[in-house]
Design a protein around this nucleic acid. Structure first.
Lengths: 267, 267
DNA sequence: CTTGACTCTCCTGCAAGGGAAAGCTTTATT
DNA sequence: AATAAAGCTTTCCCTTGCAGGAGAGTCAAG
C-alpha cells in the first residue's frame, strides 16, 4: 500500500491527477483511511493507471476512458471509438493547418495601412422585401430605396435592420444588377416590382467590415478578395453589402459602417 | 445605438459572448444605462468586434487579443505574437499527427489477447546504490540483491522504492550484464563492488507495466518492441526493469507488478 | 393593464488539473 | 519523553470561453 505521493512518484503521474481521477470515478484508491481521509494505492493498480495514460495519449477524454474501461473493452465498441476519435483528430489537424496558413498570410499583409479583418460566419435565413433592377451605376440606388420604403411603411410593417444590397452577376454590360433589400418582421403583399421572400442562409460567408465613406469601399473589396485567394476560398454566390451605419444615423461619412459579405466555398 | 440583442444579431456573435467580452475588458458597450443596466452598442464598434473575431480565428485567446488591441498593434510586437502563435500551433499539429499514427497502430493490435499499453514518460534523475556484474542467467540475481541490501542496511540508509535492474548490452557472450539498483535517500560509502551515483534522467522513456510472474515478462517486451517499431521510435539506451510488487509484498506470483522502461528517441 | 419579448445579474458546468490554506505524520532536537 | 520542524495530505476555489438556466426587472404593443 502506497500513500498517494509515493504512488504518484512511481507512476509519474501528479498527485493532483490521481485525486482528479478518483473524483471522476476513473481510479478508486484501494483504501481510504476513514479518520484522516488519506488515500492508499496498491501496486496492482499500476496496470490500470498505465492503460489510462495510454488512452489519454491517444486523445481520449477522461469521460471516454471511463466508458471504455467500464464497458470492459468490447472489441467492437472499442474499434468504433477509435475510428470516431481518429476522424475527430483528423479534422482538428486540418483546421489547425488552415489556421497556420491564415497566420502566415496575416504576417504578409503586415505593412498595409488599413488592414481588413476577414472572418467566416454562418448566416441564417431572413424574411425580406426587395426590389431587383438594373441601374447604371452603384450610386444611383435612391429611387429603389424610396419605392421599397414607401411600400413597407404603407402597410405598417416593421423593418429589421440592417438593410442591404445584393449585387448579382450582371451578365455582361456595364449596368449593375442590384437587389435592394429590407428585412421585415410581418406579412406584406407583393407588387410587380416588390417581392417578399426568404433570403436563404449561407453556411460559409466571408465577411469584412468597412468604416468610412462609400468611395473607399473598394479597399475592403480588394482586401477581401486577397484574403480569399490566399486562404484558397472561392466565391460561391453574389455578394451582399450590409449598411450598418449611414446617412440616416450619422452626418459624418467617416463614421459610415458597411459590411461586405461574400458566400464562399473552400477550394 | 443598438441593444445587445440587435448588435448580436448584426454581428452574428451571441449575447452571452458580448457580455463576456465586456467582463474581460475586451469590448465595452458604447453606453450603459445607469438605471436599468442595459448595454447599448454603436455600429462603429463592429470593426473592433470584427477584428476580435479575426484574431480569435487565428487562434489567439481573449487575453492575448486584449493585449494586442490595447498595445495598439505595434507592428513589431504583433509580428512576434504571430510567430509565437504560429510555432505553438505547428507543434500542436505535429503532436496530433503523431497521435493519429498511434491510433492507427492501436487498431491493428486489436486482436491480441493481452494488450500492453505503452506510454512515453519523462524520468527524473535519482540517487542510487548499485552493483553491476555479469551473471549467467536473468534469474540468478539473488546474491547481488543480498549484498546490496546488507550494505545499505548496515549504514542505516533508507531505500526509496522501487528497486530496479538495468540490463546493459552484454558485448557478446551468453552471460548477462546486469546492474541491480536501490534508490536511496541518504549518503552511503562506496565499496569496490557497490557504487553510489546519480542515475541520470531520461526525457523520453517508453514504459509498459506487466502484471504476473516473471516467466511471462517476455510478452511485455515483445509488446513494447512492437509499439516502438510501429510508432517509429528507436532504442536510445539500456532498458530498466522496475519491481513494483514482488515476493516481498505478495505470495501470489500472478500479482507481481513489473514495469519495463526503455529510453527511446524519435526516429 | 397585460402580454410577450427583451434584458439584467448570479450560478453552475465543461477538462484537467494548479495554487493556497489548513490538518496529519514522521523525524529531529532538546 | 516532549516538542518543534519538515514534509505530507486534505479540501476548496481558480483557470478558458463561453453555454444554459433561474429569478427578477424593463420595454413596446395591443
Amino acid at each position: 500500500m502506497f500513500k498517494i505521493g509515493d504512488f504518484a512518484r512511481l507512476s509519474k503521474v501528479t498527485v493532483k491527477a490521481l485525486r482528479h481521477y478518483e473524483s471522476v470515478g476513473l481510479l478508486q484508491p484501494a483504501r481510504i483511511d476513514a479518520s484522516t481521509g488519506y488515500r492508499y494505492y496498491m501496486a496492482s493498480q499500476m496496470s490500470k493507471l498505465n492503460r489510462i495514460m495510454a488512452l489519454k495519449d491517444l486523445g481520449f477524454s477522461l469521460e471516454e476512458i471511463s466508458i471504455l474501461l467500464h464497458a470492459d473493452m468490447d472489441p467492437e465498441h472499442l474499434r468504433t471509438f477509435l475510428e470516431v476519435k481518429h476522424s475527430e483528430i483528423l479534422s482538428r489537424v486540418r483546421d489547425e493547418q488552415a489556421r497556420l496558413v491564415r497566420i502566415e498570410n496575416y504576417m504578409k499583409e503586415e505593412g498595409h495601412a488599413m488592414r481588413y479583418d476577414c472572418v467566416i460566419k454562418q448566416i441564417e435565413p431572413v424574411r425580406v422585401a426587395s426590389i431587383r433592377d438594373h441601374i447604371p451605376t452603384h450610386s444611383e440606388q435612391g429611387h429603389l430605396w424610396q419605392a421599397l420604403g414607401e411600400h413597407i411603411e404603407k402597410h405598417g410593417v416593421k423593418i429589421v435592420p440592417p438593410c442591404m444590397v445584393i449585387y448579382h452577376q450582371g451578365n455582361s454590360d456595364s449596368s449593375v444588377d442590384a437587389e435592394v433589400i429590407e428585412p421585415i418582421s410581418g406579412d406584406l403583399p407583393e407588387t410587380d416590382r416588390i417581392k417578399v421572400k426568404i433570403l436563404e442562409g449561407v453556411t460559409e460567408m466571408a465577411c469584412v467590415v468597412h468604416k468610412g465613406p462609400y468611395q473607399t469601399l473598394h479597399n475592403a473589396y480588394s482586401g477581401l478578395l486577397n484574403w480569399l485567394e490566399e486562404n484558397r476560398y472561392e466565391i460561391a454566390g453574389p455578394q451582399r453589402e450590409l449598411y450598418l451605419a449611414g446617412e440616416w444615423s450619422t452626418a459624418d461619412t467617416n463614421e459610415y459602417i458597411t459590411e461586405i459579405q461574400c458566400p464562399v466555398r473552400h477550394a
